Simulated scan of single mutants.
Amino acid sequence: MENVLQHLKNLGFTDLEAKCLHVLAVSGTQTGYEIAKGLGVSRSNVYAALQKLAEKGAVLTSHGEPTVYQSVPIEEIGERMEAELQASIRYVKEHLPKQETQMSEYFSLEGETKVIERIRSELRKAHEEAFCDLSPEEAKLLRDDIREVSAQGVRVIVMPTRDAGTGFYPFARKRGEGLKGQQGRKFAILIDRKLAIIGTRGVEDPTVAMITEHPAMVELLYNHFCSSVVLQELQQDMGTKLEDKYGKNFKKIIQKQIDGKVPEPKKSDEGKVVALKLHAGNEIAGELGHLDEGVSGGELLSDESAREDNPEKLEQGKSEQEKPEQRKSGQGKRKKKK
C-alpha cells in the first residue's frame, strides 16, 4: 500500500487524496463519512480532498443524500494525466526562454540515483566523444548507455582500471597512501572535451560526484586520459624494452621524480633547477629565468631533449666551458714570447 500511495503522490495527488483513491479502489463506492471513519481523518478534510479529486476527474459523485463517491478506472486517469503532461511539456519547450550557459562552476551531486541518472543524461547528450575511466562495477552498470551512445556514432573510449588488473596506473600506490580514509571506487568521465564528471561510488560512503565545464578541470582530465592512452599503447608495443630500461610501470622514473628517491647529484648539477620538457620545457625555463636566491650559481637547465631543441644555447654553454682553458693556453703563449 505504501508504494502505491507514494506513486500516486508522484503523479501529483496529495497524501490524503491518494488515500481516498486507494480506499475507493478497494471498496468500489463509499460516502465521505465512511471514508473519513475508515481513515481516522476529519470529515471536512476528506470532503475537501474528494472535491479536488472530482475536479481532477479522478472520482465520480452521485446526486442525492448521502453523496456517494466512486473512483474512475486508473487507466482512464493515467491516459488523461499523460495527455495533459505531454501538452504542458510541449508548451514549455516552445515558450520557455533558452540560454546557452556554461557550467563554469563546480557542482556537487550526492546519492546513487542522482549521480547515476545525471551520468546517463550527460552521456546521451554526447555528440562526438566520451572518455570513461570506470571500475568493472560501473562499466557493467552503464554498459547499455555506453552501447547506445556508441551506436549513435559517438566515439567512446573506456579505460580499464587497476581493479580490473589491467591498464596503466603507475601512481596507484602513492595515491592510496594519501587517501587511506576514503572509501569507494573512483570514476571519471569526460564528454566532448567539455564536461567533466568525477566521483566515487560503492562500499560504505554515499555515492558522490562533481560536475563542471571549468576549462582547468576539463584540461586536467583530458591530459589524464591522453597520457593513459599513450602510455598503454607504448606498453603494448614496446613493453619488454621499456621494462628493461625503466622498470615495470616506469618504476625507476617514478622513484626519481615522484617518490623522491633521487640519486646523489653530480657536482656539475648542484645548484641547478631542471625544467622537464613535457609540453613547453623551454618556455618554462625562460619564464623562471635565473634563480639568484639560495641557489648556487643560479643557473636554470631544461632536460637533455630541451637543450637539444635549442642548439645555440648548447653551443654557448660549450664555449663558456672552453674559455678558462683558452685563457690558460693564451697566458702560456705570452710567457713564451717573453
Rank of each mutant, 00 (worst) to 15 (best):
L291C: 04
P265A: 08
E110T: 02
H95P: 02
F250M: 08
E117C: 02
V23F: 15
G289L: 13
G330T: 12
E264Q: 14
Q183K: 14
Q316G: 07
V274A: 02
P263I: 12
L21V: 15
P206L: 06
K174R: 11
Q6T: 07
T113A: 06
I284W: 15
Q183S: 09
R124N: 09
K174N: 10
H279M: 08
K252W: 03
L141W: 00
T166P: 00
I191H: 01
F13T: 03
N249P: 00
G38T: 09
D145W: 06
Q152K: 12
L300P: 01
S71K: 05
N10A: 12
K256D: 04
G317P: 02
D292A: 14
P66E: 11
R327T: 10
L53A: 03
E84L: 11
E213H: 07
S121M: 08
E117Y: 06
I116L: 09
Q6P: 00
A36F: 04
D292Q: 09
R80H: 08
V4G: 03
K251E: 15
C132T: 01
L288D: 12
Q70G: 14
C226F: 11
V23E: 04
A83F: 12
K261L: 11
L234N: 04
H22W: 15
G330M: 11
K174E: 15
G297Q: 10
G297E: 07
A306Q: 05
K56V: 07
G332S: 14
Q257L: 13
G111L: 04
E79S: 03
S62H: 11
P66M: 14
Q51W: 13
G330S: 12
G32D: 02
I74N: 01
V115G: 01
E2T: 10
S27N: 14
G165K: 02
Q102P: 00
M210K: 03
Q331P: 00
V262I: 05
R334Q: 15
I77E: 01
V274K: 00
K337Y: 10
R90V: 12
K272N: 14
Y91Q: 11
A280F: 09
